[in-house]
């Protein structure tokens, strides 16, 4: 029963936003959906498995560019190009994971940071394919039957439909033996090995899933905006994704949305502060680390625990 509260509340909230007909709110909602999809993957990788990725924007960028290039240059059906983008994101993440998970800690962080920067540089410099810093426009829109999905309203439904399905799936996944395995690896790799879990295999699997979801989100973003450039896929984007996972209490499921709403709303509010916005963002990142439960996720936990009045599992604690 309790497990149904969060999804139902989220869906009711989304329906409310959609019915309100407020264009600004719906636009923000689409942005939230686009952040949610890669955050789910990162929730598995960083939240559950505790493997840091400072270059996650790279996979989102790869998804966006694969979708744009395959549909523009090769005339591939847009839906199929979204699928291709997802697969490419997953494949790249798999390859990267195979290489990178030989490293850990600081070295892993720097290597993923370098990966993000390398991909960004390639997108800027490889003009003949990516269009360079000016970016590239998407010619073919995403169409369902006769409905053009470029509008905010249509995209709101599509984005949140996908996001909710993925949230349900990841919620199930983290309760499955696979998800529990991820958590064991995150807590202690030696313990994981001792009970027959291969830490590296699980890390690579989590990386592959998260890369695929990042690619999917990138493709959807590209079709929604109809135009992509390398600029949005920077380190700050990767950091925002990490902040979302941290604020959502390092979970891979519905509580992520707390982080998503917080980060998106904060980014909106901070626009009013002009040059102070990055400072406030940095302070938030520090504060989120110093208060490990993630303030809002933690409050949610306390609320739930006080209702259940049981010693539930203390999730969301970063050792």
């Amino acid at each position: 029963m309790n497990r149904a509260i969060a999804p139902v509340a989220v869906v009711l909230g989304l329906v409310g936003i959609y019915l309100s007909g407020n264009d600004y709110l719906i636009n923000l909602g689409v942005v939230c959906a686009i952040y949610t999809i890669p955050a789910i993957g990162l929730g598995l990788l960083f939240g559950r498995c505790r493997q840091i990725s400072l270059g996650h924007a790279a996979f989102v960028a790869i998804g966006a560019y694969v979708a744009a290039i395959t549909s523009n240059e090769y005339g591939i059906d847009p839906w199929f190009s979204v699928l291709l983008a997802t697969l490419t994101g997953g494949l790249c993440a798999w390859a990267v994971g195979k290489l990178m998970f030989r490293l850990s800690g600081h070295h892993l962080a720097m290597a993923t940071l370098a990966l993000g920067m390398i991909v960004h540089t390639v997108l800027v410099e490889w003009r003949s394919v990516t269009g360079g810093p000016d970016g590239t426009a998407l010619i073919n829109p995403l169409v369902l039957g006769s409905v053009d999905l470029m509008s905010d309203r249509a995209f709101f439904l599509l984005g949140w439909g996908v996001a909710c399905l993925l949230l349900l799936a990841s919620d199930n996944l983290i309760r499955s033996p696979f998800g529990l395995g991820l958590r064991v690896v995150g807590e202690s790799e030696s313990v994981a090995s001792s009970i027959g879990i291969k830490p590296n295999a699980l890390k690579v699997a989590a990386m592959t899933i998260s890369g695929g979801l990042a690619g999917l989100s990138g493709a959807l973003y590209a079709y929604w905006l109809g135009y992509i450039s390398p600029d949005p896929f920077n380190v700050a984007f990767s950091l925002k994704l990490l902040l979302i996972v941290a604020l959502g209490g390092y979970s891979g499921s519905w509580r992520l949305l707390v982080g998503v709403f917080f980060v998106v709303v904060i980014s909106e509010v901070l626009k009013a502060f002009g040059r102070w916005d990055t400072i406030i963002f940095g302070l938030l990142l520090i504060a989120a680390m110093l208060y490990p439960q993630g303030w809002l996720g933690g409050m949610f936990d306390q609320f739930r625990q006080s209702r259940q009045a049981t010693a539930g599992d203390k999730r969301g604690e970063l050792n």
């Binding site: 840091i52 600081h106 916005d277 990055t278 963002f281 940095g282 110093l290």
Partner: peptide
């Protein structure tokens, strides 16, 4: 805590740049 150390020092660098 290595992960937190990384993210906090990144946060510090974001703040100082800002």
């Amino acid at each position: 805590n290595i992960t937190k150390g990384i993210l906090i020092t990144i946060g510090v660098s974001v703040v100082l740049q800002g």
